[in-house]
């Protein structure tokens, strides 16, 4: 639950009074709240956890971590929270 996935901010907008972003996780798009990153710009990479940005990180780190999570099979699990079966 505390893992967090790095993704690229591709769009910033306001929604219901919150600063939100569209995040690209290596091809999968998700929405996240970026109230925690007042300095974030489009093109930045951020660690997203439970639909929230925890922090910024640089592109190289972000891409490496994404690949690692994908290899470990964690990426799908985190992005598509399904119920246990």
């Amino acid at each position: 639950m505390c893992l967090g996935i790095p993704g690229k901010i591709v769009e910033l907008y306001q929604q219901a009074g919150l600063r939100m972003a569209k995040i690209d996780f290596g091809g999968v798009l998700r929405e996240a709240c970026v109230e925690t990153l007042p300095e974030a710009k489009v093109g930045d990479y951020a660690i997203i956890h439970a639909g929230f940005a925890l922090n910024l990180l640089d592109e190289q780190e972000a891409l490496e971590t994404l690949q690692l999570l994908r290899d470990a099979g964690v990426l799908d699990e985190e992005l598509n929270p399904s119920s246990p079966t």
Binding site: K8, D24, G26, G27, Q60, E61, L63, E64, T65, L66, Q67, L68, R70
Partner: peptide, 10 residues
């Protein structure tokens, strides 16, 4: 972005 081309130092 093509993740497979990365230099995967970590």
């Amino acid at each position: 972005m093509d993740l497979s081309l990365l230099n995967q130092t970590l």
